[in-house]
Design a binder for these strands. Structure first.
Lengths: 204, 204
DNA sequence: ACCTGAACACCGTTCAAGT
DNA sequence: ACCTGAACACCGTTCAAGT
């Protein structure tokens, strides 16, 4: 790893994120980021080993914006978990184009680790311990990750619903009927509703 | 769309899947698939508009292998949902390298639509109707999708746990302790445990 | 009509050369 | 020491040419 001089890795990640937000993920290239920074393409390799590391920095930049301060202790532990889940969802949702990157690079993110640490603290205060706490954390994380993707990459509301309404109703009777009800369920209600199922199951 | 002659789209998808299974997702290219089929690269464009359509066919091929027959009606509706969740997870898990592709192309997959139709049928028989059924289906799908990814792209067990054990324990006390318990939780137990939380919440 | 290979405009990255 | 541009080995895809 070379030692940065005029730039920080964070500035590099910001430039890459700017490219992605403007030109979508397909627009991300070493050349595009270099141009965004007004430097030569090869100059990037002074700050980064390869494209993969650049992607990891972008994911880290996005996820490090998650507020991981423990929520107000006056709230019930259930409310505090809801707050944490919303924070993660909203932070990623601010940059939907990076969602596919988070999939491959999420597990190395300090932001998610800090988020997990705070959630584990809340679970512990709720009296959830040992293996049950492992399962609870992983269950919550799985749900939030999946929900973010469903929301931003082909949702039941939006274009997904259109596709469903074009399905042969004879083969998909339940889908046809569900699509009608889905129109009345907004993304927030959907996200919090699924989360409520999980929390009910956790014994809140 | 051109009309196929010597090949079907399914054969094309199989060849692409073979390339992915052998050389990982990075090895997938139009040239590699053409070589796998013993034809010219441009010959592929007779069967497919572009690379994206090829990827969609691969996802469809994998997901169409999910058994969507309604499970044994002697089982409780909770057990039947568990069967459906396991089927989806195990089918995708047979080709972990395509997981990143399923993320972008899943929503157009007939396999997932059929899976959803069957799950909705079970939920209906359980007396879950209207908007609550929408939320239940989406919650289940979110969880299964997220859990598949967590399992195959950076799990808490495996390399993820190693990373966690290298974290400064002073900053991550709960993570350190949880990692110890995580060693005793296998992937199946983890998957079914999180699912059980959801099903408990659904009122099984 | 069906299929092909050369060519184009990209990509990430290596490497030798500049200051 | 730091930074650069040409070059290499790849991409997906266009297009004119073959049978």
């Amino acid at each position: 790893m070379p030692r940065p001089r005029s730039l920080t890795q964070e500035q590099l990640a910001s430039a890459a994120l700017a490219v992605i937000d403007r030109d979508a993920l397909a627009g991300l290239s070493m050349r595009a980021v270099a141009q965004e920074l007004g430097m030569s393409t090869m100059g990037l390799y002074r700050y980064v080993d390869d494209r993969e590391e650049l992607e990891r920095l972008v994911v880290e930049l996005v996820l490090s914006a998650v507020d991981t301060e423990p929520p107000d202790r006056d709230a019930s532990w259930r409310e505090r978990i809801e707050v944490m889940a919303r924070r993660l969802r909203d932070t990623v949702g601010a940059h939907p184009a990076v969602v596919p990157l988070t999939i491959t690079h999420r597990h190395r993110s300090l932001g998610v680790l800090r988020w997990s640490e705070t959630v584990l603290g809340v679970l512990t205060e709720a009296g959830i311990e040992g293996e049950r706490r492992v399962v609870a954390l992983r269950g919550l994380l799985s749900y939030v990750i999946g929900a973010i993707q469903l929301e931003h990459l082909g949702s039941l509301s939006g274009p997904g619903t259109v596709a469903i309404s074009q399905l042969p109703p004879a083969d998909f009777p339940h889908m046809a009927e569900t699509a009608r009800h889905a129109r009345n369920v907004g993304p927030d209600q959907e996200f919090l509703g699924g989360l409520a199922m999980l929390l009910d199951g956790l014994g809140a």
